[in-house]
Simulated scan of single mutants.
Amino acid sequence: MDRAMDQARIDAAIQVYYARQFDESARLTSRSAQGALELIRVQEMIADRVGPRSRILDIGGASGVHAARLAEAGHEVTLIDPVEAQVVQARRHGTFTAQVGDARRLRFEGDSFDAALLFGPLYHLHSPEERRTCLEEAARVVVAGGLVFVAAIPRFIRHAMVTLAEDIPHPYPKEWVDLLEHGTPTGGRFPAGHFHTAEELESELLEAGLHDVELCAIEGVAGLALEQVRDDDPELLAAALTLARKTGHLPGIRDITNHLMAIGRVREAAGRLDPTRPNGAGVG
């Protein structure tokens, strides 16, 4: 299957997965302690770097969990997502703008926002070219000196999630090797396009014209364990936050996390793409 056809398949799967099969809002708020950890970490990383009353574009913002908290903090937030059901749910918050849109073709003028969030689009995009387009579009709509926050799923943690508690097969499956070597998804219901290493993610941001790239784990080394914790345990959450804050920036260690964060700054001459060009429709 060629790249274009493969991405079309992923785009179609995204619509089904997030509209009918998976509750993204519950993942961040009630499903497990991992969601609470992720939510706190993302919000604090944004708060530490973005000025008050900023214009923020939440690209792939799903049902608006992050957008709602940013709006409560006084920011002017616009959310886009390719799944209409997610956008309908996001609009119920009533504190920010939400619309259907595609991360690869943002329908906003250049320099419209002070910061952009990409929490999801990159791991739903199969090819480096698609991911670069997504990053360049985010940079285009953010003012010079503004920040683009990008989330990725590390290939090492994905390998652990696929293989832990399984017998080690002989020979080792080629799809598991491809996951580690190339970030190739192994199948399953989740509509994945690619899994990153921290170094690869940094390279993609730099190639898209961003600079001063900062890399850190979101949940950190305790995140996978907290996926199995359903009850509210403040002490456990506090311990996980301390680990993430203290060790999440360390090379190698930062890849042992459910989600990796890259933060890049927009240059004065960041790549500007033509917002009227034709493109696919499916990744937000």
Rank of each mutant, 00 (worst) to 15 (best):
E181Y: 09
R105W: 06
L118C: 14
G145R: 04
E136S: 05
D81F: 09
F96D: 07
L122A: 00
H194M: 10
T186M: 10
H124A: 01
L117F: 03
A116T: 09
E137V: 00
Y172S: 01
G187T: 01
D102K: 04
K174A: 15
G94C: 10
T78R: 11
L135F: 00
V87G: 01
L79N: 05
A73Y: 00
G101W: 06
V142T: 11
C134K: 04
I157P: 03
V162C: 05
L179D: 10
S112R: 14
D102T: 02
A165Y: 13
R158S: 13
T95N: 12
V141H: 13
M161R: 14
S127L: 07
T97G: 08
H170E: 14
R104G: 14
E109Q: 12
S112D: 12
P154Y: 11
T163L: 07
P191Q: 11
H194F: 04
E136G: 08
T95F: 06
T186E: 12
R105M: 11
T197Q: 06
E109H: 03
P154M: 09
H124T: 00
E109R: 13
G193P: 00
L122F: 05
Y172K: 00
L106V: 02
Q86G: 08
R189C: 06
F108T: 04
G146I: 13
E84K: 06
G193F: 00
Y123L: 08
H93C: 10
I80T: 13
S112T: 14
I168R: 13
Y123N: 07
A90K: 04
R158T: 14
R131H: 00
E129L: 13
E181C: 12
A152S: 02
D114Y: 03
H170Y: 13
V88S: 13
A68S: 15
D102A: 09
E175Q: 14
L179V: 06
V142G: 01
E199S: 13
Y123A: 08
I80A: 05
Q99M: 15
V148S: 08
F113I: 01
A103L: 10
V162Q: 12
L106Y: 00
D114V: 01
T186H: 05
D167A: 09
T197A: 06
L79E: 02
P185Q: 02
V162S: 03
P191D: 04
A116M: 02
E129I: 10
